[in-house]
Structures are given as C-alpha cells and as structure tokens.
Design a protein around this nucleic acid. Structure first.
Lengths: 344, 344
DNA sequence: GTTAGCACTCTTTGTTACCGAGTGCTAATT
DNA sequence: AATTAGCACTCGGTAACAAAGAGTGCTAAC
C-alpha cells in the first residue's frame, strides 16, 4: 500500500523534527510548521494511518509520535532531503588532505577525528587488511646473542615487527645470508602467503647454507605470521554519552563495552559492497545497538577496496548530513590514497 | 592532637565498611560489628570528635558518616590492614610472566588488562620514554622513486618507523652508502640525541659521498625526531561506570574525556619517586578527579627506572588490595624486564 | 475530504504525609 | 569520669494524590 504525498510529507517532517529535538512530535506542533497547511485533526488522522502501517509509533497512548525503524528506513531510502553539504563541513574535510601525505595511519586517524568532531557521533575507520599487502623487504636485526627483531615492510610502507629467539649456533654471516635469501624469494609475496611460501621455496635453499636450519626456519615462519585482522581507528568513543537516548548508565556501559571489543566492531563494519550503507537499529544485528544506526562508506585506492569508514550514532541520527560527509570523505580519501600508492 | 586507640579503631572500621558498601556508616550498624564492644552512643560521641578533627563527614545532618579525604589519607598512611594478598590474585599476576617473554608492549598490555580485571578499576601503564633508548640499527627501505620508510630499531627491540620523501636525484647506491654511514656513526646513540648528532658528525661525511646531500640530510634528521612521549597503555577504561559514585552521566563523561587526553594522564602519572604512591581526591590536582584516587608504582630494569603502573579508582578504593597487587606486579615486572634486557 | 470540538489518557510536576535511619543531647548508670 | 539508655529532632526516600499540560481518537459539523 502506497503512501500519499501528504503522508510522505508528514512522515518526513516527523522524522526531521524528531532528529532535531529528540522529543515525540504531536499533531499540534506539526500543524504550526510552515510547510504544513492543514489542521491538526487532519494530521492526527494521517498519523493514525502512518502508525497502522508501522512507520511511526507512540511512546504511550497519548504521546506524540516517534519514527519507527521502518519509518527511518523509508526516510533514508526515499525522503532524504538533497544533501547540500555545509561549506564549513566541506572545508574541514578538505583540510585533512591539505598537507603532503606520507602515512596512511596518520591520515586515517585524522579523518576519524574530524568526522567525530563534526558530527558528535562515534566514528570508526577500518583499515586495510595488512595481509593483502605485499612484502617489500624483510630485515632481521639481532638485539643480542639470543634474540632478534624481524621487520617486515610492505609495499604500502606499513611496517610490522616481531621479536623472536635466535638459535644459539647462528653467526652474523649466516643471518645475513638468510635475510638475503628471504628478500630474494619473498619480495612481492602477499603477507598472508609468506608462511606457506617460506616452507615451499625458502626451506630447501636455507638448508644448503645454514646449520640447524630447521628450528630457525620454523621460528622465522612463525614470526612472519601477521595477524590478518584489519586495524581499527576510533574517534569520539564517548560522544554517545551526550546523546539524550543514552542518559541511562547501563545502556552507555553496554555500548562502550561493545565498542571496546574490536573484533565485534570489525565484523559489524566490514562490508562486501562498496559505497554508502545504512544500517538502522536492529539491522545492525546486535541487541545492544537497538537504538543506534551505523552508516558505512568504503574507500579504495585505484580500483582496490581498502577499508571502511563508519559513523555510529543514535537511530535519531542526522542521516542526510552524515551521508553527505561520508560520501565526501570517502571519495577524497580514496583519491588521496590512490595518489599515495601510485595507482593509476 | 592524637587519636585514641578507640578512635583509630572506629575510623578504620568506618573506612573499611564504606569501601565495601559505598553507604554512609551509622553508629548503630558499627556497634553491631564484632570488633566493636561499646555502645552506639559512645560511638556517636567518638564520631562527633572524629568529624570535628576532619577525618569523617556527614552527607547531610542526620546521615551516617563517610570518610573525608583526610580520613582516607590517615587510613592509607597508618591503618592499612597488613596486605595479605589473595592466593588467587597472586596466581593471576604470576600467570602474566609464565610464557617466554619477547616483547615489552605485549607484557605491559597484558599486565594492564589483568590489573583492571582483578580490581574492576581503570589501569594505566606508562611505558618507558623511547628517547632514552639507544639506536641499534637504522634502515631505509625505498617504496618507490619518491618515498622511503626509515626504520629505527632500539637496543630494547623497539621499532619506530616513518615515511619520508627521497630526493629525486638519489640512487640506490648512494642510499646504501648513507645508511652505512648512519649506522656506523649513530649506533648506540640515545634516540633523542640522534637529530643533533646527525648534524654534528654525519653531515660532513655525507657531504663527501652524496650529491644534493643538504636536503637529504635535513629530511633524515627530521625523520629521526621521535616524539619523546612515553606510550600509555590502558585497560578497563569503562570500569568506572560500574562504580556507584559514577551513576551520574556528566561525571562519567568528564572522567572519560580526561582519560582520553593522554598527555594529561601522562603528566598525572609520571612520578619522579620510585615505589608506591597514593594520591587521594584533590591530591590528584584535577577537579574532575575529586572523587578518584590514583595509586602508582614504578617498575624498572636493573637499576634504571622504566615506567609507572597506575590504578585509577574511586576514592572509595580497596587501597590495601590494590597496593598489594601493584607491589607484586611492579616487582615481578621489573625482574622480568631486567631479564629481558639482560641487565645484571 | 477537512476541521472544530470534546472527552479521555498518560506523563510530569508539585504537595503532602509518613517511615526509617541516623544524630545530638541529657540524664541515668556503672 | 566514662559509658550508655532514652528521646526529640532532622533529613532523605517513597508513596499517594492532585492538578496541569500535551496529546490522542472520535464525532459531528462544515
């Protein structure tokens, strides 16, 4: 059953008003708005219909109306006022990319910070999985007779390091040879294939040159196993506390607890589609996030998808503005990274 | 004016009871305790004296008493029941050091986590300043024609890395020479002296070998400037939310905001003395932390002080237990690190 | 189809009363 | 002289109740 134009208008004004005020919207206050020309009684009738269809709800029998999840969903899908981004917002976002950009993490963290400051919601950026990057160089720096640091540099300039035990028997000559072999054989290999590749291609070579090679080999292979979880960057974790729907301590606690579980957040945010994605309330599939919405946008370098930017806020979120901001940021970020990594 | 034994006893029981229950302690409930053999009227008289001397307070005219800051201070300084650590606590702390230890950050993070889980307070560990470590090796890995990653490894196995621009003119041969010179000249130099040392000792050498050396030199010198802030490790940031004194959202927000300002926390925790240090309420010198206490303990490797472990909780904190835990952990941590870094 | 009018519902706010836990003081007891 | 029993008093918390206000649904009139 389709909504009439008037119902659409009323739904839109209700959602807009509730997003702004966080207060249930009554027929009388609606009738006073300039975009609405009919009486409160008419509005009451229409609201009764909208409620019957599930787009709005009452908090109690004689209260004003509040958008339901279905209402928000409809609003986001069909009623979003054209996203004219604020000049100030644009300026702030652009400022992130003003200076020369060297490091990925830097710019990502800055993006997250700006987003959370602009919106006053929590922003989360999911970085690229290190595991898909390719090895540029491996280096082993002995610290003393028994331990050494292995350093892995990827083609994106990301550095991983890990300390491990050296075999007592090894000398610096052998170590150097090993490193050379490793670099020769492993250059350009994706990080998550290093472990296998070492056994397949490096083992035999190493055997010829190194005494006690087996234990050393295993040790290196183990060291090279980078956890393939994408790194998360947060900003504004506590912004939720200033939202009126979180004036209840226990809700806040639950929410912050979830936020501190990075693996859950990663699962929540990682998306296989590209572009903007809006999850409202129970669509997030997490009962504690029932009154939250999660808006995600993907970013990429060249044609390769790298990660996701997300904003977590109350269901009563400024969808229009947030979507606009995310679109802008993800596209700016993508082109910055494309340049940074010299994709064409 | 000295306290009588009976006043001491009463003060102690009040503090103990309040720490346990978070409820003001009345004369009647005190008189029922087995360690107390006199009547509630007597207790009332003594409490009036204790209040006059500023050790305890009333929340309103006819309420029970609550320890004042001065009361807590006296309690911590003189009345702490001998810290018999729970076997279970000891076991947990010891478990941190069970496996072979390779990496500093690992063990520190684990310590913070265990502490916060055991106590249900917020735990903060201040790591050592990287700036006092000595350079073990510097490595430069070119990513493409224009950029390269500089990697600095310290004698403690800590790795810092930074991306920077390469001069267009440089070739791999020159780069290799440069790295060799840097390593020759800078090995063992404290991290915070690298910048100066490069200008003093490396500049002239570099000049002989490298074309366009000046800009390159400056670029490297800049890259080598490691921020000399100590790294902070947190655990249980939101534990405060479960403390009854923080049932007020605005308090929680203020507190969490402070906690997210790492530089403030660093200042708060960094201590020049060694050993255990207890700061109660306003002694923390931060009005938002008025109802918090901060207990810190230092840890070291050999005779060199490395950092600080801290527990942040409500003034109504389990001082005895926390101090016990911190003493144990800081000494275990110190000996583990002493071993790890091969101090004698 | 729209709207004015009205009875009704439910939250919010304020008032009042009362209970219980606690105190300070005085007088009796040890 | 120190301790304790007794009692009047204070204050926070809770419940009960009333009144105000915002809102609804329905009916009848426009």
């Amino acid at each position: 059953m389709l909504l009439t134009d008037r119902q659409l208008l009323i739904l839109q004004v209700i959602v807009d008003d509730f997003i702004r005020s966080a207060q249930p919207v009554g027929s009388r206050s609606l009738s006073k708005k300039e975009e609405i020309s009919f009486s409160s009684a008419t509005i009451r009738n229409e609201m009764a219909d909208l409620e019957e269809m599930g787009y709005i709800e009452k908090t109690h029998t004689s209260s004003g109306r509040v958008p339901s999840e279905k209402g928000y969903r409809y609003y986001v899908d069909h009623l979003l006022s054209p996203q004219a981004l604020d000049q100030h917002d644009i300026k702030i976002i652009r400022s992130i990319f003003a200076g020369k950009i060297f490091e990925f993490e830097n710019i990502i963290q800055k993006s997250a910070k700006m987003l959370s400051e602009l919106t006053n919601y929590t922003s989360i950026v999911l970085g690229p999985a290190v595991s898909v990057n390719k090895l540029k160089r491996i280096q082993i720096v002995p610290l003393n007779k028994e331990t050494a640091v292995a350093i892995l540099v990827t083609d994106t300039g990301h550095v991983e390091n890990r300390t491990f035990s050296l075999p007592a028997s090894i000398d610096s000559n052998e170590l150097e040879k090993t490193v050379n072999i490793l670099n020769e054989r492993l250059n350009g290999v994706p990080m998550d294939e290093l472990h296998d590749k070492i056994y397949k291609e490096v083992a035999s070579l190493l055997k010829q040159h190194i005494i006690h090679y087996d234990w050393f080999l295993q040790s290196i292979a183990e060291t090279v196993k980078i956890p393939n979880t994408e790194k998360l960057f947060f900003a504004g974790k506590t912004n939720m506390l200033s939202q009126p729907e979180f004036h209840d301590i226990s809700k806040v606690r639950n929410l912050l607890t979830i936020i501190d579980h990075e693996e859950w957040i990663t699962d929540m945010i990682r998306s296989n589609s590209t572009g903007i994605n809006v999850k409202i309330g129970s669509e997030i599939q997490n009962s504690i996030m029932e009154n939250c919405s999660l808006i995600t946008a993907t970013y990429s370098a060249g044609s390769e998808k790298l990660g996701t930017i997300a904003i977590l806020g109350p269901t009563r979120m400024e969808y229009s503005r947030v979507i606009g901001l995310l679109k802008l940021l993800s596209s700016d970020l993508s082109s910055a990274l494309t340049k940074l990594y010299h994709y064409k």
